[in-house]
């Protein structure tokens, strides 16, 4: 039993040492970051958000930016709710745990469900991308433009199936907006993600779909892209008109903004530092080149711009979703 005693003593010493070390940690906010920073991605590996998050943070280890690598942690489930709930409830508030956000997803969820998060629990530090929703139909579809589709829908209410990446995501919002603005009824088919939703359109299992501009751009040979749900045409697809140009009053509320947040309660110094560093990092030449090469539309926004955008979306979505609830 000698070994046992010895071991207990060793363990006690080890515990004491580590406790001392642990106590000295909070004093080191100045040297932030002095260890790798983790970033929660609320979708599974391989999705567009995950892929882009890995891409835009690849330069973080550079001394110009953080000087420490960012480690991606995937916490998928319930359309992102699992990850964001975990982030605000259990994530560390010392600045070493970040998360990606997707607008309008998280705002819509915070309105519809009893989530632990809303726009006030997040401290945005920068936005890297904006992926507008585009209206797509199969290659052999009889619809050649938005007018065809609307005309058909008026005569056959509910007969047009529209796929999208799930409930209360940008695609769903875009479909709701289209229905409201054009005064038509469509059947929205929520799928498990953007990829299966895209597949349903390519293979003609559904009559139309809203999907990410980036994914539609890569598949444009196998689809017809009718319109884009944004305020302006996009540089990737200059020939595709906006819904507004087609006479349907739909704004950019469904555009999928992606960026990085800290939880409320993070040290102000850390928020300030990241808010300064992240937009610069997203604008790095290498990052920009990779984003462009991979067909991911970039849109860099600063902390203040993001906060403003959060607030605008909150007001708009409350209105849109309240109407939906009433109808139910």
């Amino acid at each position: 039993m000698k070994g046992n005693k010895l071991f207990t003593r060793f363990a006690l010493v080890a515990l004491a040492v580590t406790m001392l070390l642990a106590c000295s940690v909070p004093a080191m906010a100045e040297g932030y970051p002095d260890k790798p920073v983790s970033m929660i991605v609320t979708y599974s590996p391989g999705g567009a958000t995950d892929f882009q998050a890995r891409l835009v943070t690849m330069m973080a280890g550079d001394d110009k930016y953080l000087g420490q690598p960012i480690v991606i942690i995937n916490k998928p489930g319930a359309g992102g709710q699992v990850g964001w709930n975990w982030f605000v409830q259990k994530g560390s508030k010392d600045g070493y745990t970040l998360a990606t956000y997707n607008v309008p997803h998280f705002i819509a969820q915070s309105i519809v469900y009893p989530t632990k998060y809303d726009i006030n629990t997040f401290e945005p530090v920068g936005n890297w991308g904006a992926d507008p929703a585009v209206l797509i139909v199969p290659k052999d579809s009889p619809f050649n433009n938005v007018k065809d589709l609307v005309a058909y829908a008026k005569q056959n209410p509910g007969k047009i199936t529209v796929s999208g990446a799930g409930m209360y995501v940008g695609h769903h919002i875009a479909a709701l907006q289209l229905m409201k603005a054009a005064g038509i009824k469509l059947t929205y088919i929520p799928e498990k993600g953007g990829v299966p939703a895209m597949q349903s359109v390519i293979s003609g299992k559904v009559k139309a779909g809203f999907n990410n501009l980036s994914d539609a751009f890569r598949n444009q040979d196998r689809l017809k892209i009718l319109a884009i749900a944004d305020l302006e045409r996009h540089e990737f697809l200059p020939k595709v008109p906006t819904l507004k140009e087609e006479g349907i009053d739909v704004d950019n509320s469904s555009v999928n903004y992606r960026g990085v947040v800290l939880p409320k309660g993070a040290p102000p110094a850390v928020i300030a530092k990241l808010a300064e560093v992240f937009p610069k990092m997203f604008n790095d030449k290498k990052v920009k080149a990779k984003m462009k090469a991979s067909g991911s539309p970039e849109k860099v926004m600063t902390r203040d711009q993001v906060i403003k955008m959060f607030k605008e979306r909150q007001v708009y979505l409350e209105g849109l979703l309240a109407e939906l609830k009433k109808k139910k």
């Binding site: 590996p45 391989g46 999705g47 995950d50 891409l55 990779k290 991979s294």
Partner: peptide
């Protein structure tokens, strides 16, 4: 899906 990311990253 993850491999797709590996392809995209190189354009």
């Amino acid at each position: 899906a993850v491999l797709l990311g590996g392809l995209l990253i190189h354009g």
